[in-house]
Design a binder for these strands. Sequence first.
RNA 1: GUGGGCGUAGUCAAGUGGUUAAGACACAGGGUUGUGGCUCCUGCAUGCGUGGGUUCAAAUCCCAUCGUCCACCCCA
Length: 419
Amino acid sequence: MAITKLNGTKDILPEEIHRWTYVESMFREVCDTYGFKEIRTPVFESTELFKRGVGETTDIVNKEMYTFEDNGGRSLTLKPEGTAPVVRALIENKIYANGQINKMFYITPCFRSERPQAGRQRQFHQFGVETFGSDSPVADAEVIAVAMTLFDKLGVGELELRINSIGCPECRGKYREILQDFLRPKLDGLCETCKSRFDKNPMRILDCKSPECQKQVVGAPQMLDYICDDCKTDFEELKVALTAMKVPFIVDASIVRGLDYYTKTAFEIITNKIGAQGTVCGGGRYNGLIKQLDGPDQPGVGFGMGIERLLIVMKEFGVQVPQDDTIDAFVAVMGDKAKIKALELIQDMRRAGLKVQMDLAMRKLGKQFELADRLGARNTLVLGDDELEKDAVIVKNMETKEQVEVPVSNILNYLKESR
RNA sequence: GUGGGCGUAGUCAAGUGGUUAAGACACAGGGUUGUGGCUCCUGCAUGCGUGGGUUCAAAUCCCAUCGUCCACCCCA
């Protein structure tokens, strides 16, 4: 039986890697302009981090984590999301102690044991940003702007930003009760999953897709009408900031975060073009998290973005990813003596930063030209006994088909100038 | 975790119980023994995801299993 990769994992092949490096470098560029610094944390952490950081009641912690014991009997978990590890690093390295607002970004694989489908894998990749230490909604707006600027740069500007406020623990608790009071008499009319949501996460019922639930939910109290004055002020300021930054948004009361640590601002950037998993980017404010993980009582805000989903969106939008598939020279060789001389030449050219290839299979000249063509060579150098004698090489421009004889001593300059 | 679709060459596939499993692309070699893209010729699945079963006969029917895709759930 052949050994194959596991369900829900993917190889990223040489033919598509340029798409990945492209979005990653664009993301780095945008982060740089906004002043976010990269941080890299381990792929596995102690299980406790996610239990406390993400929340014991969440689906992620309850049924989707890759958790195992190491040789010492410690419980480890492959990171299911990016934020908790970054917060752990912030606390453990006492980065917060510099008294500054700290802005970081990460690019990392994540692991969740879900059933794979379009836009959802068991190992997937996320990048995201986090801002620690600012209460200001301007920080929220800045984080959102990073994502939107990236979309613009990548040419997928038509994604929809939806924002909401899910309040602070105090007003959310009150709203929860009000919502449950509203739904209690309608409980029988709800679908099975929503019945179980009633206690666990009643806010989820509001955006249930089943028509029966949609009917019951009409006229339900909206979170935004019940958030406290402080939360309301922040939400208004966020809208003002986004407007000033010319970032279009839609207020969507159904945006709810699935991770326990979120407070106040919640947002998603979505598309209907890539199947059922349309959330490309999700994030928000998490004011309780750092303290929850035994750090200082510092606020935070950030987002996570699914790279696979982003790449699918880019494909849908027909985004052309630049790819340099040409090389400076191909060296065609005939005879063993010429081969030695060619190795010397090629090494010189490569040391000088030129992209050069040769036929490792040492086939006949016609085949070598075929290969040169396929490799996108701008020039093909021919080196055989005749040329060895003259201490020169034939250089053929593959586009114009012009051939000139160039002395070996001039070849580097010649190629650099014809670039 | 639940439901459904699909597994024939490197890729896209035809074939729906009857002789040696179409075709296309890709790849390799040759026509052209020192010159690419075009063209022509040749080659490329004792095998139809895997394991059982039914049958005189199975890629084709049945069962199981694995893989994959889509959806639910949930999320990025």
